[in-house]
């Protein structure tokens, strides 16, 4: 039997390893957010079509220079053929700097133009008819590699309907071009959400509150809901579009009626899913909740992000307006994803 005297260097080394492991464990944050600064931002809904435009805002929440590599993905379909094209650009944000641009015009690198503020680098305009998403990845320097600085927040205003960008916190970022959204390098994305919605076509109090009864509304005022979804997997190196299969199970109304729609939609790249009464076969209820579950082709849980859009149409003499909200994640329902950048 041999006895070894542990030397100070070894002790320090062992402690260092233990500390490193402990720190890794302690920082293994595994939840997406729409409020806190993160290292990856996903804007699931960016549109520039039919008179609608989107104003995007990205903010550096820290007191150091921050860089981001951003990717527009055009998910529009032309004559039944999806475009799935990717356009990238870089943002350079000084400390605490926020920057804004309309998707239709972008933001030229031109200090003398009418878009005041420090230009963050050239932001290209999107093409007419663009319907897709924007992803921004925090990088360590100009044209550098990804880092986990958790400095970015974002907001989008789609034709006057606002939502916060989905944020993916960096945890132990290794700096290579494949970002693993696995709960170790970056947080994972949800694979299931709670979606509260009203029965498509509902009117009355749901559409216009109590104002229908006061002569300010109209009995034909109605509500409709759609869900904008993008898979939480991106390959910006090969442009191969990811997909996710959506199921709605269960769907429950306020009278405890239960229903389900096994596969309502296969989302490839980007999709706006209209909640259709014929598909959902809802009863006379008004308020409903559904679990929206993402699966891959094998039936395994698949990650995705999205926003809900509610359109209120005010009837013959009134206009219309839409509201966009982020989705509630089902606690613990997460799945691994990845983002590959060139």
């Amino acid at each position: 039997m041999r006895t070894f005297a542990v030397r100070p260097a070894v002790t320090a080394g062992a402690l260092g390893l233990a500390f490193a492991l402990a720190a890794t464990s302690a920082s293994a944050q595994d939840s997406y957010t729409v409020e806190q600064p993160t290292s990856v931002l996903i804007f699931p809904k960016v549109v520039n079509d039919e008179g609608r435009d989107t104003v995007l805002q990205v903010t550096n929440n820290h007191n150091v220079m921050v860089y981001a590599h951003c990717f527009y993905t055009d998910g529009q379909t032309i004559n039944g053929v999806p475009r799935w094209t990717v356009t990238d650009f870089q943002l350079n944000l000084t400390r605490q700097q926020t920057t804004t641009w309309p998707a239709s015009t972008g933001r030229p690198q031109n200090p003398s133009d009418d878009q005041n503020g420090i230009d963050p680098g050239g932001v290209p305009p999107t093409v007419d008819g663009f319907t897709g998403s924007l992803v921004c990845v925090q990088i360590g320097s100009s044209h550098g590699n990804p880092i986990g600085g958790n400095s970015l927040t974002g907001r989008a205003s789609v034709a006057g309907a606002d939502y916060n960008a989905v944020g993916i916190p960096g945890i132990n970022v290794d700096g290579d071009k494949t970002l693993m959204l696995d709960g170790l390098e970056y947080a994972r994305c949800p694979s299931s959400y709670h979606l509260d919605f009203v029965t498509p076509g509902s009117g009355g109090a749901v559409a216009l509150g109590s104002m229908v009864g006061f002569g300010l509304g109209d009995a034909v005022a109605t509500v409709s809901t759609s869900l904008t979804v993008v898979p939480c997997n991106y390959d910006f190196a090969t442009f191969f579009p990811a997909s996710v299969r959506l199921g709605f199970n269960p769907i429950v109304d306020e009278f405890e009626n239960r229903n389900s729609v096994g596969t309502a939609e296969d989302v490839v790249c980007w999709e706006n899913v209209q909640l259709d009464n014929a598909v959902f076969e809802l009863g006379p209820s008004t308020f409903n909740t559904a679990r929206v579950n993402g699966n891959d082709s094998t039936g395994a849980a698949a990650p995705f992000v999205g926003v809900a859009n509610v359109l209120r149409v005010g009837g013959t003499s009134l206009g219309m307006d839409s509201a966009t909200t982020n989705l509630h994640a089902v606690t613990g329902a997460l799945a691994d994803g990845q983002i590959i950048i060139p």
Binding site: V10, A12, G13, A14, L15, G16, L17, A20
Partner: peptide, 9 residues
Amino acid sequence: TAVVGAVAL
């Protein structure tokens, strides 16, 4: 091990 640990620390 010591070097790796120290570097890690």
